Simulated assay, not measured.
Amino acid sequence: MLSNKYQKVLYDVPAHDFQILDDDHEYTMTSEINRSISSSCYRHIYWSTVAESGLITQQASLIVLFAILFIHLDANDLQPKNILFINALIGIIGLFLYRRRISIKSLQENLKTLSIFLLFGSLVSPVVFTLTKTISTDTIYAMSTLMMLTHLIFYDYGAETAMVQKALSFSVALFSSVCLASRLSTSFHTFCLVTSAVLVFALWPELRKYIKESSFEIFSILTVVHIFACVILLSRLSILHTILYSLAVLCLTFLCPLWLVSLQKYKISIRGAWEEAVVPEQVKDKFA
């Protein structure tokens, strides 16, 4: 007769590795988190989160700047040729910053792409100019606002989630730009606004991503520049909208990260023998 000392088991897990969660027994790690994370660590996490939220602030500010550009073009306060000249200058500077070293072959390819875009844009602008003449202006503005909000929701902020849709985000932003451009006075104004939309929503995000990977300090300075530009330009149009924008920036940049960090103490993490093995950093450094 076999002794009870020896049991035929394939995999044995101690009882203390399992935690039962029901109405009567709840396992929380609030005390453990409070002991492991100090106040100085919370401050470090908060300010790093504030710095990372600059990407959201920048993208929202770009939409505000684009709306300001549309308002000035619609009121004929700006000449389209001046806007095109500024766009070309920004594009050339951004190309040199992004490429650093430009060969003759890459320059020819870029010029070819630019020529195709300018030719296609100039041919399509008269069609876009008369595209939504039968639709009311209020409907166009409401549709454009909804599309820009969709652009912000599905924009790639660096998180690898299923919610990120780069193609959808760019498509709705361009669609919103086309809707707004169809309300301008001439087809040349339309071409100018669509060109600015491509620069703002297609080219600038790639350069900004490169700047963030190269120097996070310059990226943080860009966030401040975006905010000040919006405040200065909005103050010339409406004080109320300037105040609303400032409150939105404060909420996105400071209050939302503070709320996120404060919720970490309520986070529940259950670990046991079923978890994948993780090598501690001290062991990695020892055998490195």
Rank of each mutant, 00 (worst) to 15 (best):
L244P: 12
Y210P: 14
L237N: 05
S187H: 11
S196K: 05
F170T: 06
C179F: 00
T253Y: 12
V194T: 11
R208L: 13
H226R: 08
S169W: 05
F191K: 04
V164W: 12
L168N: 10
T195M: 06
V198C: 05
P205D: 14
L244M: 11
K209R: 13
H226S: 07
Q165P: 12
S235E: 07
L247F: 15
C251F: 14
F228P: 03
Y245R: 05
R236C: 10
L207D: 01
L193I: 03
P205Y: 10
F219C: 09
S246R: 02
L237C: 01
V200I: 15
E160F: 15
L174C: 11
H241K: 11
F191M: 06
S215R: 05
Q165L: 11
L168P: 02
T253E: 13
C251V: 08
L180M: 00
S176A: 04
A248S: 15
T190M: 10
E160D: 15
C251H: 05
L247P: 07
V231T: 06
M163I: 12
S196V: 02
V178N: 00
S220T: 01
T223D: 02
A248V: 12
S214I: 10
F188G: 04
T161A: 13
S214F: 13
T223Q: 04
L222W: 09
T186A: 02
S176Y: 00
A173T: 03
I243T: 09
C192D: 09
L174W: 05
T195R: 03
K166G: 10
V231L: 14
S176M: 00
L237V: 04
L237E: 03
F188P: 01
A229H: 13
S220E: 01
V172L: 02
Q165I: 09
K212H: 11
F228K: 08
L207R: 05
E160H: 13
Y210Q: 12
T186E: 00
I218Y: 12
R208T: 08
A173H: 02
F228R: 08
T186F: 01
A173C: 04
L234V: 02
A162W: 11
A173Q: 01
F188R: 08
W204Q: 12
L168E: 04
C230T: 06
T161N: 14
K209H: 09
K209T: 06
H241R: 13
R183S: 02
S214R: 09
F191T: 07
I221E: 06
E206M: 14
S238Q: 09
L234Q: 03
S246L: 07
F191P: 01
V231F: 07
I218F: 09
S176T: 01
T186G: 03
H241N: 15
M163H: 10
A229C: 04
M163N: 12
S214H: 14
L222H: 06
F175P: 01
L203R: 09
L234I: 03
L168R: 07
V200S: 10
